[in-house]
Amino acid sequence: MSLSKEQVQHIAMLARLELTDDEYAESVAKLSRIVDFVDQLSQADTDGVIPMAHPLDAAQRLRPDVVTERIERDRYQENAAAVAGGLYLVPKVIE
């Protein structure tokens, strides 16, 4: 199955990826190939097979409700490109 440029644009938008025109052309071709390849799965007979989300059959372990973290905000924010007054900055958000 071949993907259209519009489909790839929509996917790139959902994934928040800017692509150049060349990258779009290449992505359309390569993603189409990948989708073709994984389409093999449709041949498998999976009637009644339970989807497997985890490799091991285990249940979630629970953590006691205790405050354990010591927070070093300034240290963490050294990795951020734009901060002010302890806040992370982004271009103005309009709701």
Binding site: V38, L41, S42, A44, T46, V49, I50, P51, M52, A53, P55
Partner: peptide, 10 residues
């Protein structure tokens, strides 16, 4: 579908 096939493989 892939999660189901994953089960078959396991």
């Amino acid at each position: 579908k892939a999660q189901q096939v994953r089960h078959l493989i396991a």
